[in-house]
């Protein structure tokens, strides 16, 4: 009873989930991350936007404990990241690389999803329960008996996401989760991420250059990273007050926002792509008349 109480209280105390303070990192001579400070609270959804080469993947790798900070401090659940063991890191962080095929080696999707849990020594009945649970949430229950190598790109991504969430880590890191997906699959994947964010306690960090997804993530806290520095932080509303921030940082404006801007409307959450298209239609008719 006491043990149960203890484990629960230690989990509850994992807030902020992650903290970095004046973080610097370099591979060679040149710094790739230049003094990043950030706090990630429980259940928070953080969207790190930045052009290619701005250091997003590097930042996620530091948070995952893969790369050690050269200068500055990073912690997970209040513990210095450099002091954490491989087991601690695996328990605290789910890391999803942009290439799902680099994960797959089991003969069945079920084993692929349960891999982390087995490494952490979780008992079999809990594993089976968790796999079924997460597979239902991510809509991949039919895939469990298939071979991972027969999956489509979108399915493979969901399987990898499930395998990163199987042990319910407090922090989930997604690197370019929508790269190579078409609009429909993208929307579906982001809906799943929103769902996870609502259902689980997990804090989520998404790194991407795909600005189209920001209008799909209304709750997200936005960061823009450029050349290793955070050049903007705020909510989606904040960034829409100043849309030139995208072009200034070598990012393209989200399609919906650009469309709205050109039509002289201010985009907000209520504006759907369909509304905009309706507006466009009206405009075309007026012009043709």
């Amino acid at each position: 009873m006491l043990a149960l109480f203890k484990s629960r209280s230690s989990e509850d105390s994992c807030d902020p989930v992650a903290r970095v303070d004046d973080l610097w990192f370099r591979y060679g001579e040149e710094y790739v991350l230049k003094g990043i400070s950030l706090q990630i609270r429980k259940r928070e959804l953080v969207l790190v936007l930045g052009p290619n080469g701005s250091g997003k993947s590097t930042f996620l790798k530091v948070l995952a404990g893969i790369l050690k900070p050269v200068r500055g401090y990073a912690s997970l659940c209040g513990r210095d990241i450099t002091s954490l063991s491989d087991a601690d890191l695996a328990r605290l962080v789910g890391y999803v690389h942009q290439n799902p095929w680099l994960y797959m080696f089991n003969s069945k999707v079920f084993d692929e999803i349960s891999f982390v849990a087995r490494n952490l020594g979780i008992d079999n009945s809990t594993i089976t329960k968790n796999v079924l649970d997460i597979a239902t949430k991510l809509d991949i229950i039919d895939l469990l008996d298939r071979s991972p190598f027969s999956l489509s790109e979108g399915e493979a991504r969901r399987v990898v996401l499930a395998s990163a969430l199987i042990h319910k880590p407090p922090l989930l890191l997604l690197d370019e989760p929508t790269a190579g997906l078409d609009y429909g699959l993208k929307k579906r994947f982001i809906d799943i991420i929103n769902k996870i964010n609502n259902l689980l306690e997990t804090a989520i960090v998404i790194a991407t250059h795909d600005t189209d997804i920001i209008t799909m993530l209304p709750k997200a806290k936005l960061l823009i990273l450029n050349e290793g520095r955070i050049v903007f932080r705020g909510s989606i509303e904040d960034v829409l007050d100043n849309p030139s921030i995208f072009t200034k940082n070598n990012l393209v404006m989200p399609t919906e926002v650009e469309l709205a801007q050109r039509l002289g409307i201010r985009w907000d959450r209520a504006t759907d792509l369909d509304d905009l298209l309706l507006e466009l239609d009206r405009l075309r008719k007026t012009l043709c008349r």
């Binding site: 893969i66 890391y95 680099l102 982390v116």
Partner: peptide, 18 residues
Amino acid sequence: SDLIEILHIQKTRGLFIR
């Protein structure tokens, strides 16, 4: 470099614990 990336990934999945 693929190999390094895979080692990193499987490390975050706890491959080297047991």
